[in-house]
């Protein structure tokens, strides 16, 4: 377990716009927002938090290209190399001449690979799997509450006042820095 150098405060808002507006002043004061939990995708939140763009779409493109290659290899091997047939007076001599008949297969397999592998990537990157323990610390954040986890270094009262001024409805200290309370750290974690 990593050493905790900073304390963490969790703050709840009951409105998405109020939460969104509070992020800028919090970050300007030099606090690091570790995580945000919201019940629905709040537009502009990733931008306010300074998150990098997601690369999910790029992975889908790569997977689609793989799917297309697999489909080309499959049709080429089965129809041209392994067992060429003369169907309706139209013999399968080359893949190129037969390609128009393979378009539906090429398309379907491109989509199949792109969609399924992207969703697998999405699950892996998010660390999601059936039965995983809920990642949100407060169950109200899937209903109508919006939570920010803010790291700070001393000066708790100052931070609490800042959050209150920006419309926080509930503020809790969730983690204390090591030097203040080393016993919080579990010995055999």
């Amino acid at each position: 377990m990593a050493n905790k150098n900073k304390s963490v405060i969790s703050v709840l808002f009951n409105d998405d716009d109020v939460m969104l507006k509070s992020i800028k002043p919090i970050r300007e004061k030099g606090y690091n927002i570790r995580e945000a939990y919201t019940p629905f995708p709040v537009h502009g939140l990733d931008h306010e938090l300074g998150l990098a763009r997601t690369r999910m779409a790029i992975t889908a493109f790569i997977y689609g290209a793989i799917g297309l290659s697999v489909a080309i290899a499959l049709t080429y091997y089965t129809m041209i190399v392994d067992w060429p047939q003369n169907i309706g007076g139209k013999p399968s001599f080359t893949w190129g001449e037969n390609m128009p008949a393979f378009v539906p297969i090429l398309f379907e397999m491109t989509v199949f690979f792109a969609a399924h592998l992207m969703v697998w990537t999405y699950f892996v990157r998010n660390g999601m799997y059936p039965g995983r323990k809920a990642m949100n610390p407060d169950p109200r954040t899937t209903d109508d509450m919006f939570m920010l986890e803010i790291e700070f270094d001393g000066g708790e009262d100052e931070l609490r006042q800042l959050l209150k001024d920006h419309g926080a409805v509930e503020i809790n200290l969730v983690e204390k820095a090591d030097e203040e309370a080393p016993e919080l750290e579990e010995a055999h974690a």
């Binding site: 019940p39 998010n126 059936p130 039965g131 899937t142």
Partner: peptide, 27 residues
Amino acid sequence: KILSFGWGGKAKHWQRFEEVSLVLAGL
């Protein structure tokens, strides 16, 4: 709990969620 895959509504996850939904819609 089994069905929800541990979903917690993290900001990064929502960002990915929206992109995945859009790409799946495009496909």
